[in-house]
Design a protein around this nucleic acid. Structure first.
Lengths: 197, 197
DNA sequence: AGTTAAGGTGAGTGGTGACTCATCTTTATG
DNA sequence: CATAAAGATGAGTCACCACTCACCTTAACT
């Protein structure tokens, strides 16, 4: 009778196979949705993960929740990326580097891009988005202090540009070169310029 | 026996009710798809047009063709808009005005924006897109001659920026003010500047 | 007015995809 | 090893949607 009772409030740890499958599903979902966009079927995710469809729905009761879980993952990684950049890169370049990197990945991460700007994000994801926005704001301020971005540029403008360019990069006809040239124009627009305004 | 035979090669004109319904369907499709994106159902278009489903499919045998018909319409209108601008506006401003106007309409015309950048456009629509691209190229050259856009900017860069910003403007959180400020940055990037590059 | 073919109608078909559940399998624990 | 609960399974349900077709209506021409 001294044995551990199921103490209320402390959830038992997940079973080993369950944890493994959860990871597999997330990985599969990320590649599948990256390739085909969010309209890809849940069955395809299950197939790629090598599990039955019911298993996917046991872990993520709706497709929405699955998408949101991926979102959180991706946003978390982006956030860590950004923190690393803020630490390592020259303060004047960090914002530009980050934007360029994100645009580069955009084509492979349709999901992030799509949802970064989407309406109807629930609170779970919203907080991650919030973090990203704050990170961008920080990078922006540093760039302005370093003089590589003109005063008066506001964070929401940078985010708007970022989402727009990422969206554009998703579609056909944006080769590396065009991407680089387009970004160059936007960066010029952001740079401080004494002879204007 | 002197009565007119159905001369081969000369198609009879459409019946009056057919023509009327065709217009209604196009108008309905434009509003419905503008509101809900291309995934809106054909039934909803039929309902809004006040005709039966079968009628829609008699005029446009597939949903694809309906979407393409709208595209052609919209692109044609844009093209006329652009021609008018080229004639009336100051040559240095015409490009900026056109881009601003297009972005402004973007939120109400999800379809154009979406398909402007989409892969797999058929030849019908491709020619209209081609016209638009040529028009933009013309406006760009004029702006460069007038000195409001720096030399070295290429048409595909302008188009890339345009589609990107339009895509971004589709999504939530882009109020008028943000739109204006974002465009200002892009325009700054396009403007000739002696102190750079 | 009468004739006819173009046009309109809408219940029906087939396919797809999100989600469920009764049943079987596996892990953790005594 | 035995047991129980967590987890996995996949055939089945339901809703939606693009598209069809047999039948009815109407414009257009004599």
């Amino acid at each position: 009778m001294t044995s551990s009772k199921p103490s209320p409030g402390v959830a038992r740890p997940m079973r080993a196979d369950a944890r493994r499958n959860r990871e597999r599903i997330l990985a599969a979902a990320e590649t599948v949705f990256a390739e085909k966009g969010p309209s890809a079927s849940t069955e395809e995710v299950a197939a790629r993960a090598g599990v039955a469809i019911g298993t996917v729905f046991k872990h993520f009761p709706t497709k929405q929740e699955l998408l949101q879980a991926i979102m959180k993952d991706l946003l978390g990684r982006l956030d860590r990326d950004m923190a690393a950049l803020a630490a390592d890169d020259a303060p004047g370049d960090a914002l530009f580097t980050f934007v360029a990197r994100m645009v580069e990945q955009a084509a492979q991460k349709r999901t992030v891009v799509g949802l970064l700007a989407e309406t109807g994000i629930d609170l779970q994801v919203a907080s991650s988005v919030q973090m990203l926005h704050e990170g961008i704001a920080t990078l922006l301020v540093r760039s302005q202090e370093a003089g590589t971005v003109r005063e008066g540029v506001r964070p929401d403008e940078v985010i708007a540009l970022l989402t727009g360019i990422c969206q554009g990069a998703l579609h056909a006809g944006w080769d590396r070169d065009l991407q680089r040239r387009t970004l160059a124009i936007v960066f010029d627009g952001l740079r401080a310029s004494a002879d204007r305004r």
